[in-house]
Amino acid sequence: MTMNKISKLMLFIMIVIATVTVHAQTGADQNLSTKQQAIVRIAALTGRGSLEQLKEELNAGLEAGLTVNQIKEVIVHVYAYAGFPRSIRGLQTFMTVLDERKSKGVNDVMGNEASPIEDDSSKYDRGKAILDTLLDSPQRGPQTGYSSFAPVIEIFLKEHLFADIFERDVLTYKERELVTVSVLAAIGGVEPMLQSHLKICLNVGLTADQLQQYVGIIKTSIGKKEANSAKSVLNGVLKNK
C-alpha cells in the first residue's frame, strides 16, 4: 500500500472515530444522569409524602453517588414548595435510612457543606440577581399580579427562596430546578408555576429530551395522572419556546 493510500485510510479512520465519539456524547447529553434521575424521584416522593417508597429511592440515590448533604439539600429544598411537614418527614425518613445503612457497615459520603456567602449586598438584591439569571431576563418595572396584590410575598421570594435557598451551592441550579418541577408535578394543581419552572429548566441548560425523561420518571414514581398533566404543560412550553 502506498503512503498516499495509507494517509487516506488513516484520515478516514480518524473521521469515523470522531463521528462515533460525537454521537456518543450527544446521546449521553440527551439523558438525565443517574444522579439527576434519583433527585427527581426523591423530590417527587418527598413532596407527595410517599415515605415507604421514598426509603427505597433514598437508598438508590446514595448508591447512585449522591452525597448525604446533597440528598439533605434536596429534601430541604422541597419545603419551599410542599411545606415544612413534607420536608421534615422526608428528613426523618432519610435519618432512618442512614441508620439502617450504618448498622450494615455502610459508610456513606457526607459531601460538601454549603459555602459561606461572602457577598455583602442585601438578600433582596442577591435573590433578584439569581432570579434574573434563572429567567435569563432582568426584571424591571412595577410589580404586577400577586406581587402587587401582596408585596410581602414578593420580598419573601427574593430574600428567602432565591437568596437563602437557591444561593446555597450544595446543589446546582439545574439540580434545584429538577427538585422544583418534580415537587410541583407531584403535588398537582399548580400548573402555572410548573410552566414557569419548566421554562427555567431550559434556561439553565436542561434539554427537551431530558425534560421528557423527567415526565417519564414522574409517571413511574408518582402516577399516570400527574405525568400526563406535567407532559401537557411541558408540551406547551416546548411549543412556545
Rank of each mutant, 00 (worst) to 15 (best):
F12A: 14
R101T: 01
I17R: 12
G61T: 02
L11C: 04
A43G: 09
A43I: 10
S87T: 10
V106F: 08
A28G: 08
I17Y: 03
N69T: 00
T67Y: 01
G65R: 13
Y81A: 01
Q37M: 11
I17A: 12
D108H: 05
L11R: 14
F84E: 06
I42S: 01
D29S: 09
Q36H: 13
Y81M: 10
N69I: 00
M95W: 13
H23N: 15
A80K: 14
Q30V: 08
M14S: 12
I42R: 07
S33P: 14
G90P: 06
V78I: 04
V68W: 05
T96A: 09
L98E: 03
P85D: 00
M95N: 15
L98Q: 02
R86V: 07
A43D: 02
E100M: 05
K55P: 09
Q70E: 06
L51D: 00
Q53S: 10
Q36S: 07
M10P: 07
N31K: 14
D29T: 03
Q53F: 04
L45V: 13
N107Q: 15
G65C: 05
V109P: 15
E100S: 04
L51Y: 05
G47A: 09
M10L: 11
A82Y: 12
R86Q: 13
E56N: 13
V20L: 07
T19H: 14
K55T: 06
T46D: 07
P85Y: 05
A80M: 04
A24F: 15
K102N: 02
R89Y: 15
V20Y: 03
K55Y: 10
H23K: 13
L51Q: 02
I71G: 00
Q92T: 14
H23I: 06
E56P: 09
E52M: 06
V74C: 09
V22T: 07
V106W: 15
K72W: 15
Q70P: 01
V16N: 06
Q36W: 06
L58S: 01
V20Q: 08
I13T: 08
M10H: 06
V22P: 08
G90T: 05
V78K: 13
T96Q: 13
M95G: 03
A24L: 08
L45F: 09
Q70K: 03
I71Y: 02
F12W: 02
L58D: 00
F12N: 09
I88E: 06
L51S: 00
M14C: 11
G49Q: 07
V97T: 05
V16M: 12
T67A: 00
K104D: 01
I13W: 09
A38T: 00
L11T: 15
A24N: 10
R86I: 05
L66V: 01
I42W: 09
H77V: 03
N69G: 03
S50W: 13
N59C: 06
A18W: 08
P85T: 03
T93F: 05
R86T: 08
N59I: 01
F84R: 06
T67H: 13
E57R: 12
E63K: 08
L54F: 04
Y79G: 05
E73Q: 13
V78G: 04
L45P: 12
V97W: 06
E73L: 03
E73I: 02
E56K: 12
K72V: 08
P85V: 10
A80Q: 13
L58Q: 11
Q30W: 11
